[in-house]
Amino acid sequence: MSNPLSADALVAALKAEGVTVVEHAGWRTHNRNHKGPWGPVNGVIIHHTVTSGTQASVDICFNGYTALPGPLCHGVITKDGKVYLVGNGRANHAGSGDGDVLKAVVAERATLPAPNEQNTDGNVHFYGFECVNLGDGKDPWPDVQLDAMVRAAAALCRAHGWTAQSVIGHKEWTATKVDPKGFAMSDFRARVAARLGEKPDGSVPSVPSAPAYQPFPGADWFKKQPRSAIVTAMGRRLVAVGCSAYASGPGPQWTEADRTSYARWQRKLGYSGSAADGWPGPASWAALKVPYVKEV
Rank of each mutant, 00 (worst) to 15 (best):
A240K: 11
T163F: 00
R109W: 06
I168L: 12
K177M: 08
A283K: 09
A194S: 15
I77R: 02
G135R: 09
R109L: 15
H170V: 06
S52Y: 14
W27G: 02
Q225A: 10
N116R: 07
W162A: 11
Q253K: 11
L85V: 10
R195W: 00
K294M: 12
W279R: 04
E108N: 11
P71D: 00
S244D: 12
R237K: 07
V58D: 02
D201H: 00
K138L: 11
T255N: 09
N33T: 00
N31Y: 02
F216T: 09
N92D: 14
R158Y: 00
S203Y: 04
S244V: 10
E198A: 15
G202A: 13
Y271R: 11
I230A: 10
N119W: 00
D220L: 15
I45N: 06
E23Q: 11
D80F: 05
S274R: 12
I230C: 06
S96N: 01
Q145W: 07
D187L: 15
E172T: 03
E117M: 05
A286E: 03
K181Q: 05
A56V: 03
H47W: 08
V105F: 10
N31S: 13
R189F: 04
C61G: 01
W141K: 14
P115I: 05
L146Y: 03
A245F: 05
A229Y: 09
L134H: 13
Y246K: 04
F129Q: 02
P282Q: 01
Q165F: 10
K289W: 11
C243I: 08
P4R: 00
R195I: 07
R259F: 08
T29F: 09
M234I: 13
C73V: 12
S186M: 09
N33L: 00
N3F: 06
Y65S: 06
L156V: 15
C131K: 03
A159L: 13
M1S: 13
K171G: 04
I60P: 11
D277F: 06
D187G: 07
L134I: 03
R158M: 00
K289G: 00
Y127L: 14
G235V: 01
A154M: 03
S186Q: 05
A104K: 13
T78K: 05
W221N: 07
A175N: 14
K199L: 15
Q55E: 12
A190T: 04
V11E: 02
G197W: 00
T260G: 09
G43V: 07
G249N: 11
T20G: 04
N33M: 12
H47G: 01
G97H: 01
G18R: 08
F129G: 12
P215Q: 02
K199G: 04
K199A: 13
N3V: 15
